[in-house]
């Protein structure tokens, strides 16, 4: 008895994602041969293409997992969490959470933060185009106007605060992928220190760098809509050693802002 049309894709989709299920009724091969191996081509295609999309979205995480674990986890994740949208550059939003919970990676909790950082890097790469605020423009704003105005965050600017030295590990492993010898640098990483990572896109390539607590608090406050004074206050509260000049220089050169809004009252 052949399945009713309405259920055809459901059975096919479920069977593609679950190797334990039987080949759906009605699926056949020429000359009455067994369709299983032919159907398995679709199973393989789906899981492999999803796993490869994950690998290219998470290259540093993949490097840290090692090939065997990376293959196993990404295939498992793909079967359990297929994408909800055809935009594959957005695929894998739940992957950091999956790593945080998975028995094979729970003991290395920094991996989830590395994966989060890679998602932010992708978000930055595809973010809307906007001008980058230039230091000379900001330098012409009188102090009293600066104080009540608002630095507008660039759409490609993102922050990640981590309990681990995530930005440093990320930079190291990127260098390793590029073929550099990082053994000495690896041994110097202190896993007990937290870090704040700034992700920006000053031109078209994404830059990831560790920044100080005060700088991260300042930028986060700007991102939350605080005016200049409010952002400075938030930074000083988080870190009394907050250095405004240094932070502004870093923020401007990294392309963290797209403009300055004087917020004039009308």
């Amino acid at each position: 008895m052949l399945p009713d049309e309405g259920h055809h894709h459901s059975a096919f989709a479920a069977a593609v994602l679950d190797p334990e299920r039987a080949v759906p009724e009605g699926v056949a091969r020429a000359n009455g041969r067994d369709p299983l191996e032919a159907f398995n081509v679709y199973r393989n295609n789906v899981v492999v293409s999803l796993a490869e999309a994950l690998k290219s979205a998470f290259p540093v995480t993949s490097q840290l997992l090692g090939e065997g674990l990376q293959r196993a986890l990404m295939a498992d994740f793909a079967r359990a969490h297929p994408p909800s949208s055809p935009i594959m550059s957005a695929y894998g939003a739940e992957f950091p959470h999956y790593l945080a919970d998975h028995p094979a990676t729970k003991a290395r909790p920094f991996l989830a933060d590395i994966a989060r950082l890679e998602r932010l890097k992708l978000d930055s790469y595809h973010a809307a185009d906007a001008p980058v605020l230039d230091g000379s423009v900001l330098g012409r704003v009188p102090p009293e106007a600066l104080a009540v105005g608002r630095l507008v965050p660039h759409p490609a600017m993102h922050l990640l605060s981590s309990a681990f030295p995530t930005a440093s590990i990320f930079g190291l492993e990127q260098a390793a992928i590029a073929g550099q010898d990082v053994d000495a640098a690896r041994s110097q990483i202190n896993m007990a220190t937290g870090e704040h990572a700034l992700v920006t896109r000053p031109l078209f390539d994404v830059v990831v760098q560790p920044i100080a607590l005060g700088a991260a608090s300042f930028l986060r406050a700007c991102g939350d809509g605080a005016d200049f004074t409010g952002a400075v206050d938030a930074a000083l509260e988080a870190d009394p050693a907050f250095d405004l000049q240094q932070t502004l220089a870093l923020a401007l050169s990294s392309g963290s802002f797209s403009g300055f809004d004087p917020q004039l009252e009308t």
Binding site: E5, H8, H9, S10, F12, A13, A14, V16, L17, G26, Y42, N45, V46, S49, L50, A53, H81, P82, P83, S84, S85, P86, M88
Partner: peptide, 22 residues
């Protein structure tokens, strides 16, 4: 071909039967 169903987007080009309904 089709690629999406209730499970989500399967990132492959999957086949369909050729009937009046399809």
């Amino acid at each position: 071909a089709w690629s999406s169903h209730d499970e989500g987007y399967l990132n492959d080009l999957l086949p369909l039967p050729y009937t009046q309904a399809t």
